[in-house]
Simulated assay, not measured.
Amino acid sequence: MSTNLPLIWQAPTWPAMHYEPIPVTGELARAHRAQGVVEGKLAGLGFEQRLELAAEAWSQDAVATAAIEGERIDLISVRSSVGRRLGVGNKIGPAAPRSVEGLLDAMDDAVRERDAALTHERMYAWQAALFPTGYSGMSKIVVGAYRRHAEPMQIISGRVGRETIHYEAPPSERVPDEMDNFVAWFNAETEHDSLVKAALAHLWFESIHPFEDGNGRIGRVLIDLVLARDSGEVGRLIPISQRLLDNRDEYYAQLERAQHGELDVTEWVLWFVTQVRVASEQASVAIDTALAKAMFWTNHRDNVLTARQRKVVNLLLDAGPGGFEGGMSTKKYESIAGTSRATASRELIELEEMGLVCRVGAGRSTRYYLNIVGWGPADPVRAAQDGPAQGEDRS
């Protein structure tokens, strides 16, 4: 099987790749500004809140980087493992498989040991951690070392007999030399902005495709390493892998275009920097939500709530701006709190009187939302007119 697409490995070699600074400069400034906003907002949070945000972002990103490769891992077990590592949140949960623990080990090493040099052995350890049994699915693979098979390393999609070859990496015998060049470049001081370096490093590594399996996840760990060197632990809060998962088709398309084009990789760099900016903006929204929660409880610290009321309010807080779809009704409260209809109605009215929630609508169409600016329905008049969701008990 062969492809007519040109291979970037024919010459010149990767250190000659370049990008045009002018198209990238404006987006770089916006991305760094978004990163700076994240750092600034974090200053308004306590240490424990920062850890909780970092734990959730790390958990979501671990699930996302696996999902990009088509692997589904359990978010609850990841959260409990991350909680134990950071000493925060719910640390009691189902044990994560060894391969998942290995992924978290690699991601953690990139952040905690961000000042350590990148070496072949360090990447060997990351890749071996992903495949603790030495198998990828049903296939025995080389772990803790670069690939050595004689057949070409091809990136293929489609069913058997109808495959599409997206890219062919350099042959295995060239991998050690290619990776020597890559490691030397990665560790050297360069003129590249950190986000540009992350983009180039990821593209270069994925193009070498040095391992039999795990290249995508290791390539995204390298992004974590570059960003951690730039912003430290704050980098955990910026969900790059989640953003790439959300745009997986475009992510693959951009990599493919860069690998089959000339050595001008401006389009890839610009696209990657934009993803960092958007991921930073998403992190900023998450921090806003955490700040709103903290301020909410500070404002209502003197209110005495029943255990049921506190449970419902916490669920609404966890749901974030907009809360539950259709708002909180007496029926929902009754179900969540495990209480009678009369008690649910009375306790919701008490929450309104204490100022924790605000009411929209009247009679059977009454719905309650947290009393936080911007957290209610976008159109309260429409919400009142619409009444209960389809199929919901109107009482």
Rank of each mutant, 00 (worst) to 15 (best):
N4R: 15
R308S: 07
G261C: 11
F211K: 12
H202S: 06
L305H: 00
E325K: 13
D108F: 10
V100I: 12
I22M: 09
A116R: 14
S59C: 01
A283W: 05
V312K: 00
L305G: 01
A283V: 10
S395F: 13
D74A: 02
M153T: 13
R367N: 02
D288S: 10
A150G: 11
L200C: 02
E39K: 11
G158K: 00
R301G: 01
R85K: 08
S81V: 11
E178Q: 15
Q35W: 11
G158V: 01
L5F: 11
R394F: 11
T339P: 13
G214A: 03
I240N: 03
R364A: 04
I238T: 01
E48S: 10
V100C: 11
E233A: 11
L28P: 11
A110W: 10
T298Q: 13
G387I: 15
A198F: 03
I208P: 00
Q254I: 12
E113R: 14
I156P: 06
L222N: 12
K91R: 12
A62I: 09
V357F: 03
S207I: 07
I223R: 03
V373K: 10
V38S: 08
Y251E: 10
A319N: 00
R50T: 11
M179G: 15
I218L: 12
Q390M: 10
I8P: 14
W297P: 00
T306A: 02
H192G: 00
L255F: 15
F182S: 13
L75P: 00
A294Y: 05
Y252D: 10
A96H: 07
D180H: 15
F182T: 09
A184P: 08
A16L: 13
T366N: 07
L227R: 05
P6C: 08
K197P: 01
P94C: 03
A378K: 06
Y124E: 02
A253G: 12
E71L: 08
L5A: 15
D264K: 06
A199Q: 00
A319P: 00
R236E: 01
S157G: 10
L75H: 03
I8T: 11
T13D: 14
P171I: 06
L244G: 05
L255A: 10
R114C: 04
D213E: 12
G261A: 11
A307K: 05
R346C: 08
R85I: 13
G134T: 10
R159G: 03
S81F: 11
T3I: 09
M1A: 13
E262I: 06
M107K: 07
N187S: 04
R98S: 15
K332G: 01
V373G: 02
G338H: 01
V196F: 01
S59I: 02
R33T: 14
P377K: 03
R308M: 01
L103R: 08
A337G: 05
